[in-house]
Amino acid sequence: MRFGIIVFPGSNCDSDCYHALRDVMGQDVRYVWHKESDISDVDCVVLPGGFSYGDYLRCGAIARFSPVMQSVQDFAEMGKPIIGICNGFQILTEAGLLPGALIRNRELKFICQPQYIRVEHNRSMFTNMCQDRQVLNVPIAHGEGNYVADEATLERLEANGQVIFRYCDAQGECTNEANPNGSMHNIAGIMNEKGNVLGMMPHPERVCDPILGGTDGRLIFGSIVEWAERRIANAK
């Protein structure tokens, strides 16, 4: 399958995603410049991390008006997979493709560290290769990853199983101490209602190559590939 990595001015994890998907996962990948509008040749859109437009004003606030974002909206409506990582997650919430918002970390500091996250369930195109409640080690690196939403939204997210990753400790307990940034309900990643748009603060592309200390990121990208292949097989 072919992944399309959207490059905004100021994206800086675009080449990391490219390397992880092509050289480690063995997939077809291309960069999509933010001014492009035709993305019909890609099967999965990746919004990479970084500081699009310097993250000036608000994280992701300016990027959502890039020309390519209209195509990304359409792509989402078609039910095709979209994964927004870190700044990509922020852009998806600003664009209204995911509910809620990401505000400054509880400690008001940028945090870069290895991080345990719990897979809430494996009935999604992003987690089908994981076990239910599996603990993954996927690092975080952000200044504004503190997930907030109103009570009704949170209830809906929980009821629909849209909360897919939660910050936890090594044993999988989602305690306050294990919450690095103050996110409500320890939320590290959520999906839209249809389950084809994922936003997550942790960086799976940073744990694909074993020399970097882990390979848990492969489970997430691998799940997307697995889902796409199954769909093609079913179509036949």
Binding site: Y53, G54, Y56, L57, I62, F65
Partner: peptide, 14 residues
């Protein structure tokens, strides 16, 4: 003011 400049550019492009 880099922030202001980025917002100005975005406003103009919109």
């Amino acid at each position: 003011d880099p922030q202001g400049t980025a917002v100005k550019d975005a406003a103009l492009s919109m």
